Every structure is written in structure tokens, then in C-alpha cells.
Simulated scan of single mutants.
Amino acid sequence: MKFTTLGAALAIALGSASVAAQDDYQASEKAIKLAKENILIDTHIDVPYRIHDQWDDVSKATERGDFDYPRAIEGGLNAPFMSIYIPANLEFEGKGKSYQLANQLIDMMEALAYRAPDKFAIADSVADIEKQFKDGIMSLAMGMENGSPIEGDINNLYHFYDRGVRYITLAHSQSNHISDSSYDIRRKWKGLSPFGKELVVEMNKVGMLIDVSHISDDAFYQVMELSKVPVIASHSSLRKYTPGFERNMNDDMLLALKKNGGVIQINFGSSFVTSGANNWYTRRDEARDAAKESGKETTDFTAAFRKKNPFPFATLEQVLDHIDHVVKLIGIEHVGIGSDYDGVGDSLPIGLKDVSTYPNLVQGLLDRGYSDSDIKKILGENMLRVWREAEAYAEAN
């Protein structure tokens, strides 16, 4: 992961004209009010790993990254899910390091809330979110990105639930002991592992939401068969706009999600939003491989490639297209926000560059004819509904 200041990222990647284009988005007072006066949940923000990699006090304004408290307040964000992200590699998988890192990242979030109790509080229930919203405190919920820290032991599921984790992304960019990954051509399990199937059932029982982002299509459909409660895709977008990109969801998967009662939280990263941005990474990787073979790879290869091949940033309007498609296909009750802020580097769309910009999204929804009640569902009510159902099922079982 690479983090730069917003201004530096824009200046380098876009140039001054495009910085102006970012500023051209002006949310109305109504859009700002809708963002600030309702529960706004973003189910995927990578602050924990960002500040583990290089410390920032996000309770204050920061020069780096996409999130800090002042910008979040400006944007109306009051209930971010902080991602307990565990890298997908053999160094971590099955060797105790995943478990250790996950606990360290949770410690950091607890410490953040402890140091700034007037700003943050940990939230591990819908009731916490609602109470802290009324009290004017930003809720820090937690989701685990990559189930590697479970390490094949159901007791670790209970441990992380007790520590406040409320969803688990079953795998990340490589298949693990739970599930195949959409990025990994080695389909070791042809979906979920035997332990993964057991884990899904137990996650339902304990009240841990199942996150189907990152997993393979086969694993997704197996989760749909097993889960007795709605699931989430915490930070995914649509394959309709990125053909061949399995990391995103196709229309058949969306229809299965509707039947399950779940919600897809739209990822803002440009490579998730448009095929042009997605293909840019493929072209860069191919060029890097060719440079390696010829012995011409340089340490600043990506910067040099980007200078010759400007990155095709997505736009706010294209993010809205994803939301529109979900709504038209499966209904307003099944879509929300999972930006991936602090997780996609400087690839964010024009108009949605950091957590201060949610009112721009709200304005776009207003401009497209969404009602206030529809927008409230997208901002947070849909996610709260799914979370409540998970809580109710666990209480009954």
C-alpha cells in the first residue's frame, strides 16, 4: 500500500486542471445535511494497516491518507468499519503471525478510541452505532479482511468476536485455509474448504457477518447455500463495468444476494469502477515483466510508466452507475458504501478522493432522482438491517 497526501497524489497523477475538476463538485446544503444528519456507514476503510505501516494520529488532521477525524466530520462519516487487514502470503498463513497482527491492529483501534473519547468509541452492535450517533461520537466498528487469523480454530472466531470484529472477509488475494480467492488461479478448494464450510455455519451462530468480497465465484455460491442470514460484500463493485474481473460481482451473483437478503457495498477504487482503470494495471504489469526480462526494470518503474501512460481515473458519475445498476436489478435495499479508502492508494475517482467527499455522492444521488429515504438506506440503513438480522439469528441460536 502506498499513501500520499491528497494534494500530492492529485498534483502528480492528475495535474492542476484535474485538481480543479475535483473542486468542481459542489454539494448542496441539502446533500451536506443528508450526509451529516443520518447514520453514514462505510464498511471498508484501511486505517489500521495504514497507521501500523507508518504512524499517523488520525484523531487530528493528517497530511497522508484518505481518512482523519476532521475530514470524516466534514464528510458526515460517523460509522466507519475499520479494516483489520491481514496480508495474504505464506509468511502469515498458518504460522501464528496472522493472529498476532490482527490482535495488534485491534489494539490500535481500541487505543485510538481511548485516547480521544470525545471523538471515537468502539462499536460492536447496532445499538452502539445508534447510541453513539445520538451522542455525537464517531463509532469505530471493525471488520477483518482475510480470515487467515482464524488459523483453523473455531475458538479464534469466538476470540475475535469478543474483541469486537463483526465481519470477516473469508479470503484476500490468495486462497487460504478457509476459501479460494478470486485473484488466485490455484483453486485449491473449488470454493470453500471443509473448515470454511464449518466456519460459515458457526459465524451465523455467533453473529459474525460473512463478507463475500475477494472470494471466488464458487465460494460465493457455496456461502449462499450455507448462510442462514444475509451476507455482505463489504467493498465490491460490478463486473458489468469491468468484464472478466472476478473480484467484482456479476448480475447472477447480485440476484443471489437479493434472495439471501444481503447488501453490496460499492468500492470506489477506479480499477473496480471502470475497465479502463482495471486494464491499466494489467498493461503496467505486462510492461514491468517485459522490463525485468530485458534487465531494464527501474526502482521507479511505475512512476515512469504512469508518466507515459496517464492513469484513467474513474469519476463520481461512474460510481453512481454501479449504484444505479444494483438498484434497478435487485432493489434499493441491497446497496451501500464500502469505499476502500486508505486501501487503493491514489486510484480514487475524481470527486471522491477522501472521506470529506461523501456529500458529493449524496448530491449525485439527488441529481439522479433518489429520494431522501432512498439515500438514507444507501448511507447506512441497509447495512444496519443486515447487521440486525445477524444479531437476531445469533440470539435465537
Rank of each mutant, 00 (worst) to 15 (best):
residue 126 V to T: 14
residue 6 L to A: 07
residue 303 A to K: 13
residue 4 T to F: 06
residue 54 Q to A: 13
residue 375 I to Y: 09
residue 270 S to G: 02
residue 317 E to H: 05
residue 123 A to K: 10
residue 137 I to T: 12
residue 84 I to F: 04
residue 248 N to H: 08
residue 48 P to H: 11
residue 113 A to Q: 05
residue 110 E to A: 04
residue 141 A to S: 14
residue 79 A to T: 15
residue 215 I to R: 06
residue 310 P to E: 06
residue 225 E to A: 13
residue 58 V to W: 05
residue 143 G to I: 05
residue 13 A to V: 02
residue 381 E to T: 11
residue 30 K to D: 11
residue 277 A to T: 08
residue 55 W to I: 07
residue 172 H to L: 01
residue 176 N to Y: 04
residue 299 T to A: 13
residue 122 I to T: 03
residue 34 L to K: 12
residue 188 K to Y: 11
residue 93 E to H: 10
residue 78 N to S: 14
residue 121 A to S: 13
residue 50 R to F: 10
residue 327 V to M: 03
residue 180 D to A: 05
residue 124 D to I: 00
residue 66 D to K: 13
residue 245 F to M: 03
residue 248 N to S: 08
residue 190 K to I: 01
residue 105 L to D: 06
residue 217 D to I: 09
residue 291 A to S: 10
residue 305 F to Y: 15
residue 138 M to L: 08
residue 290 A to L: 14
residue 317 E to R: 01
residue 303 A to L: 14
residue 116 A to Q: 00
residue 360 N to A: 02
residue 4 T to G: 01
residue 179 S to A: 15
residue 138 M to P: 02
residue 46 D to P: 02
residue 287 A to M: 10
residue 362 V to A: 06
residue 383 M to W: 04
residue 75 G to T: 07
residue 189 W to S: 04
residue 150 I to V: 15
residue 36 K to R: 15
residue 172 H to I: 00
residue 112 L to I: 06
residue 352 L to A: 05
residue 258 K to E: 13
residue 310 P to I: 08
residue 357 T to H: 13
residue 183 Y to C: 09
residue 149 P to A: 10
residue 227 S to A: 12
residue 299 T to V: 12
residue 154 I to C: 00
residue 195 F to E: 01
residue 73 I to K: 15
residue 396 A to E: 14
residue 297 E to W: 00
residue 344 V to G: 02
residue 223 V to F: 03
residue 388 R to S: 04
residue 353 K to M: 13
residue 190 K to W: 01
residue 262 G to S: 08
residue 218 D to K: 14
residue 210 I to C: 04
residue 90 L to R: 13
residue 336 G to T: 09
residue 105 L to C: 07
residue 322 H to V: 07
residue 232 I to C: 08
residue 52 H to A: 11
residue 67 F to A: 08
residue 262 G to E: 07
residue 241 Y to P: 00
residue 113 A to F: 04
residue 198 E to R: 09
residue 58 V to K: 03
residue 151 E to F: 03
residue 98 S to D: 12
residue 217 D to A: 12
residue 163 R to V: 03
residue 49 Y to I: 15
residue 60 K to M: 10
residue 26 Q to H: 13
residue 2 K to I: 14
residue 305 F to D: 03
residue 65 G to L: 07
residue 93 E to S: 12
residue 82 M to N: 04
residue 238 L to C: 12
residue 234 S to G: 01
residue 72 A to P: 04
residue 253 M to T: 11
residue 253 M to N: 02
residue 336 G to H: 09
residue 89 N to H: 11
residue 194 P to H: 10
residue 308 K to A: 14
residue 371 S to M: 02
residue 232 I to F: 07
residue 42 D to G: 07
residue 206 V to K: 04
residue 187 R to L: 15
residue 12 I to E: 11
residue 239 R to P: 01
residue 238 L to A: 10
residue 19 V to R: 13
residue 283 R to I: 00
residue 216 S to G: 11
residue 112 L to H: 05
residue 394 A to C: 04
residue 213 S to W: 07
residue 374 D to F: 03
residue 327 V to D: 08
